[in-house]
Write a protein that binds this DNA or RNA. Structure first.
Lengths: 334, 334
DNA sequence: TAGCTCGATGCAAGCGCTTTCATCAGCTAT
DNA sequence: ATAGCTGATGAAAGCGCTTGCATCGAGCTA
């Protein structure tokens, strides 16, 4: 059997209390005793029983995170930074993915809470009904990332999807594009996607272009899907001179398809993305996009959660700044 | 306070034992009682205390995984499938990353075990000294993925890095390349990288090309780094006609740099990758590479672990097949 | 030397759950 | 009606740890 506190205590000739103190508050134990105890710990290969510890201390040192998917690189980088920061602070990461399904997310939330997560990281502000109330009732530290919304129920650590995309759309309009199309990810259950879409609509409308109408195509996540949506848009009579995409993955799909269709980018059509993933710099022409400092966001989210847990810090929101990255895929229409 | 079993019991007018049975073995409780208990559970919003449950049942329904990094897409896809399969089987995923540092991995292993992980997923077969013995002594189900090695201490669920890369190198040689270079990830502490390197060396040697020597450049992971290594190789007198890369990310870096250097691929120089990430199809020219069925591997690893845990299945290895993907970046030398 | 203080240590009470074993009510078979 | 079953339920013993409180002894002060 694995050794218990008692085994260590017996071997070191002290009480279990002293052993426990050696492990959790060494300054309370005199040097000589501590040395003896540590010796016993090593000799026995003792390591504390997690369940017992949780039970007695009522803390798991575990933080849960639920992302829509870890497959696509969008969340990976931020998550990596999040995990590193957590780890440095003595926390472990319990990770689940919801496949963009609120119901699944709700189930995961319950599961992670039941598993004793000390805090939770969620993406965006849109939840299954009742979950916000459930969360509030539990009083557990929760942070919503990848979006910033001061009015939301949960404190946010993220960026302003609306204004970031608005800025890019303004740029497209300013370059002289009049026929613009937008390829979006599914907006149902996704406040980030919806904010970006609204930003493009508002920018276009603000420029007095409503006559032409903004063409919007909704498609699921993926390079292929982005390509298909792009092809459909370009086959329309009076095709757009600029195709904006809700994220880099869709944009790369569009770019690749453009090449296959013998369309020159940006001469025949401009294309923009969002996220500034590594991908964006590698394709040709390189993608004009919006840079999101994912690592900084992940670190900020972890810090925020830890201080909410350890110092009962009040929920506070952190706004992460994005920036416009101008590359070759966007140019004035010819 | 959060309600306990006892609160539910009191409200339903039964003992805690009966409530516990309702939750864990409903068939042992008569319908009428169960209904009453469930009603109380709902009314109180009860959910069992994780620590207490672990303590009493000695199972956490949690599986730990340690990957070198989650930032780069290589592990993401397999991990996603792994997590989905786990989730379907009622397990949660405790995820950590080691940044390719064996010492850090060792620490994470201890931490995850102390946290009561019921099983562990690790990458490759190379560990810090003493860890294999530690693992063996704990008798915990452990699976090593992303590599297959029947001789290793841990059961593997993965592919044969050596023969997969050998096959690709054979192809390069067969096309007539005589001056070949190889860009590898750091091989220290990384058995997968080492196997791939050896495969290229053996293939080149086997073709009787040792006279020319295979140029090997070692660099850390990253698009930029791949580009730098590529540039250095091409600046040598008598530059290679084919540059093979240990993975797609390095290859994409090389490809991008080639374009910047006004080298035509594949006319001036061929480039190959490994992994067949989404990236590989998107760059121009598209990358010749080795496809690794990451999802299948993740699913197989999860299944293997679950059956080791639940059915005490003997550790068994699963070999995942890879395949050569021929695209435009590789052609005969001109 | 008596009386204190104070730091180091031990004692023992939980923490919330599962599970074994005992109990008890409602049957059936005689 | 009585003994013997059977299936549903309850009582209570841990599981291994943390921590408040009691204890003890050594070093002070007066």
């Amino acid at each position: 059997m694995t050794p218990t506190l008692e085994d260590v205590a017996k071997r070191a000739g002290v009480s279990t209390a002293t052993v426990s103190r050696c492990l959790n508050a060494p300054e309370k134990v005199v040097e000589a005793t501590r040395a003896r105890v540590m010796e016993a710990v090593d000799a026995l290969g003792y390591s504390p029983h997690f369940g017992a510890r949780v039970m007695a201390a009522n803390r798991t040192n575990t933080i849960g995170a639920i992302v829509p998917t870890m497959e696509n690189a969008i969340f990976a980088e931020g998550l990596q930074a999040f995990q590193e920061t957590l780890s440095a602070g003595g926390y472990d990461l319990l990770l689940a993915s919801s496949s963009y399904q609120p119901e699944q997310e709700a189930a995961q939330i319950r599961s992670l809470i039941a598993r004793g997560a000390d805090g939770l990281l969620l993406i965006g502000h849109e939840r299954a009904p009742g979950i916000d109330a459930f969360l509030a009732q539990r009083g557990l530290p929760v942070v919503a990332a990848w979006a910033h919304n001061a009015a939301a129920a949960l404190p946010s650590v993220g960026f302003d999807n609306y204004s970031a995309m608005h800025r890019l759309a303004d740029e497209v309009v300013a370059l002289g594009h009049r026929r613009i199309a937008y390829i979006t990810a599914p907006v149902a259950e996704n406040d980030r996607a919806r904010a970006r879409l609204k930003a493009v609509q508002d920018a276009v409308r603000g420029a007095g272009l409503e006559a032409h109408g903004l063409r919007v195509s909704e498609t699921t996540y993926g390079i292929e899907q982005g390509g298909d949506a792009f092809a459909a848009l370009m086959d329309l009579p009076d095709p757009p001179t600029a195709v904006m995409c809700a994220n880099d993955v869709l944009a790369v799909g569009a770019l690749t398809r453009a090449h296959q269709m013998d369309l020159r980018v940006p001469q025949d059509v401009s294309i923009t993305g969002f996220d500034d993933m590594a991908l964006a710099r590698v394709v040709r022409p390189a993608l004009t996009t919006v840079r999101v400092p994912h690592r900084r966001m992940g670190i900020a989210a972890a810090r925020q959660l830890i201080s909410m847990i350890e110092d009962s810090a009040p929920p506070a929101s952190v706004l992460i700044e994005t920036s416009l990255i101008r590359r070759e895929s966007l140019a004035p229409p010819e």
